[in-house]
Simulated scan of single mutants.
Amino acid sequence: MPLTPLDIHNKEFGRRLRGYDEDEVNEFLDQIIKDYEAMIRENKELQNQLMAMQDKLGHFANIEETLSKTIIVAQEAADELKGNAKKEAQLIVKEAEKNADRIINESLSKSRKYALEVEELKKQAAIYRARFRTLVETQLDLLNQDGWEKLETANVGARELE
C-alpha cells in the first residue's frame, strides 16, 4: 500500500546518541509531504483528464462506428438505387424494342397489303384496257365493214320519200 502524506507526517524515528538534527529532518519531511501531496494532486488530475479523454475517445469511437454504418447503409442504398435504375432502363429498352418491332411489323404488313392492292389494281387496269381495246377494235371493225354504205344510201332514199 502506498504511503500517504499523513503517513509521512506521522512517521517518528527512534532517537540515538549521534542522530540527525530533528529540525532539519522535520523540515525535510515537511518538504517531502508538500511535494508528495502535489504529486498526488497532479496524479489525480491526470487520472481525471485520462478518464475524460477516454470518455471522449469512446464517444468519438461511437460516432465513428455510427458514421461507418451510415456510410455502409448509404452505399447499399446507392447500389440498390443504381441496380433498380439499371433494371428499369433495361425494361424501358425492352419495351421500346417491342414497340419498334411491332411498328416495323405493322409497317411491313401494311406495305405488303398496299403492294398487293397495287398489283390487283394493275391487273384490273390491264384487264379493263384489254377489254376497252377489244371493244374499240370491234367497233372499228364494224365501222370498216361494207354494210354502212348501204345504210347511208337507204337513209338518203327514206328522206326523199318523206
Rank of each mutant, 00 (worst) to 15 (best):
E88G: 06
I32A: 01
E65M: 05
E95S: 09
K86Y: 07
S109A: 12
V93T: 11
H59C: 02
S68G: 07
S111E: 10
N62L: 09
A38M: 03
A115N: 10
A77L: 13
E88S: 13
F60M: 11
N43K: 14
V118T: 15
I33L: 00
D79C: 02
I127L: 06
E42P: 00
N62V: 06
A89Q: 13
E76G: 02
K86M: 05
L46K: 13
A130S: 15
K44H: 04
A85P: 01
N99G: 04
E80F: 04
N26W: 03
S107E: 04
E88F: 10
E65T: 09
L50N: 12
I40N: 04
A61K: 15
E42D: 12
R41K: 14
A115S: 12
I92P: 00
M39P: 00
E24K: 15
T70K: 04
A74L: 13
E97R: 09
K110Q: 14
I127H: 03
E80N: 06
A38W: 01
D35G: 05
L91F: 06
E76T: 05
A52W: 00
Y128V: 02
I32P: 00
L57F: 09
A78V: 03
E27R: 15
R102C: 01
R41G: 01
L50H: 11
E24F: 07
Q47L: 10
R102D: 10
K113D: 12
Q75F: 01
I72Y: 10
I32S: 00
T70I: 04
G83M: 12
A78T: 05
L29G: 00
E80T: 10
I104W: 04
E64D: 08
E65V: 02
